[in-house]
C-alpha cells in the first residue's frame, strides 16, 4: 500500500526520478537563498527578478530555439543586468533599492515583450517559458545540480558577512568593505537559482519554491541554521508530495508542488511554535530568571 502509492511511481518511471532529482536540487539551491531574501525583507525581490529573467530567456529562445544554453545565458544576462543596474542606482543615487529594482525589471519585461512580439511568436512561448518538471533531460539536470552546488558553496563562503548584512547592514558597512561585494554576490545567487528553477518549474513557479518554504520555516524556528534546514525540508517534502499528487490525481506538476508548499505554509502560520497564530493566542509564559 505504502509502496504502491509512494515508492512505486519513482521506482517504475524514470521521469519521476528525474523530476524528483531536479526538485531536490532546486530545494537545496534556491530555498536557502529564499531564506536570506526573507531575512533581508526582500521576498518580493525574487518575484521582480523572475520577471526580469523572463524576457532574457525569451530572447534566447527566439535566437536559437529550445536550447538550454541560450535560454540560460539569456536569462542570466537579463537578470544580472537588472540586479547590477538597480543595485548601482540604489547605492549611488538617492533612489531606494526597491524603487530602482522595480524600475529596471519593468523596463526589462517591456523590452522582452516587445522583442517577442516583433519577432512573432512561433511556438506558444508561454508554454516554453513555463517549463515542465516532467521533461528534464540530462543537460537540464546537470545544469540544475551544478547551479545548486555552486549556490551552496558560495553561500558557505559569504555566510558570515551575509548574516551580518541581514542583521545590521550599517555595522557591516562600517567595519568591512565586503558589504557591496556580499550584496552583489547574493543578488547573483538569486538570479542564478531563478534561472535554474525556470527550467524545471517555469519562471513564476520558481519563485514559489524559493520563498514559500522559507516563509513556512520562519514559524518553526528562529535560529539561522534551523531556518535553513527547516526550509530545505519543507521544499523537499513539497516536491515529493506535489509529484505524487500529480501522479495519482492527474494534476499539472509545477502548480501541484507549489500548492503543497502553500498548504505547508498555511499550516505553519496556524500551528508554528515560533510566532504562529495558536502559539500567540496561548497565554505567554512569564520571564523567568
Amino acid at each position: 500500500m505504502i509502496w504502491d502509492s509512494i515508492f512505486a511511481p519513482f521506482a517504475d518511471f524514470g521521469f519521476m526520478r528525474r523530476a524528483l532529482l531536479g526538485c531536490v536540487a532546486i530545494a537545496l539551491g534556491s530555498t536557502p537563498v529564499g531564506v536570506f531574501l526573507m531575512l533581508r525583507r526582500m521576498s518580493l525581490t525574487g518575484d521582480a527578478m523572475a520577471h526580469a529573467i523572463l524576457p532574457g530567456a525569451a530572447v534566447g529562445f527566439l535566437i536559437s530555439g529550445l536550447s538550454l544554453g541560450a535560454m540560460t545565458i539569456g536569462g542570466l544576462i537579463a537578470g544580472m543586468v537588472v540586479a547590477v543596474a538597480s543595485g548601482v542606482v540604489a547605492r549611488v543615487t538617492t533612489l531606494k533599492e526597491d524603487a530602482s529594482l522595480a524600475a529596471f525589471y519593468l523596463i526589462s519585461l517591456a523590452l522582452g515583450v516587445l522583442i517577442v512580439s516583433t519577432r512573432g511568436s512561433n511556438v506558444d512561448l508561454m508554454h516554453v517559458l513555463f517549463g515542465t518538471v516532467l521533461a528534464l533531460d540530462n543537460d537540464a539536470l546537470t545544469l540544475l545540480c551544478g547551479i545548486a552546488s555552486l549556490s551552496l558553496i558560495t553561500l558557505a563562503v559569504i555566510f558570515r558577512p551575509l548574516v551580518l548584512e541581514c542583521a545590521d547592514p550599517q555595522f557591516l558597512r562600517s567595519v568591512s568593505k565586503l558589504s557591496a561585494v556580499t550584496h552583489f554576490v547574493f543578488l547573483a545567487l538569486v538570479v542564478m537559482n531563478l534561472v535554474a528553477g525556470f527550467h524545471a518549474l517555469g519562471t513564476l513557479m520558481a519563485v514559489g519554491i524559493m520563498i514559500l518554504p522559507a516563509a513556512a520555516a520562519r514559524f518553526w524556528t528562529r535560529g539561522i541554521g534551523g531556518l535553513l534546514i527547516a526550509a530545505v525540508v519543507v521544499a523537499i517534502v513539497s516536491s515529493v508530495a506535489g509529484l505524487l499528487l500529480s501522479y495519482h490525481y492527474s494534476l499539472p506538476s509545477g502548480p501541484a508542488i507549489i500548492l503543497v508548499a502553500g498548504v505547508l505554509y498555511a499550516l505553519s502560520v496556524c500551528f508554528g511554535p515560533a510566532g504562529g497564530l495558536i502559539s500567540q493566542a496561548l497565554p505567554r509564559r512569564h520571564f523567568e530568571t
Binding site: P9, F13, F15, S246, S250, P252
Partner: peptide, 15 residues
C-alpha cells in the same frame, strides 16, 4: 490542446 500542461499521471499512462 497545446494550452494544457501535462500531469505526471498522463505521462505515466502514456509510458
Amino acid at each position: 490542446s497545446t494550452e494544457s500542461e501535462a500531469s505526471a499521471a498522463d505521462v505515466a499512462a502514456l509510458i
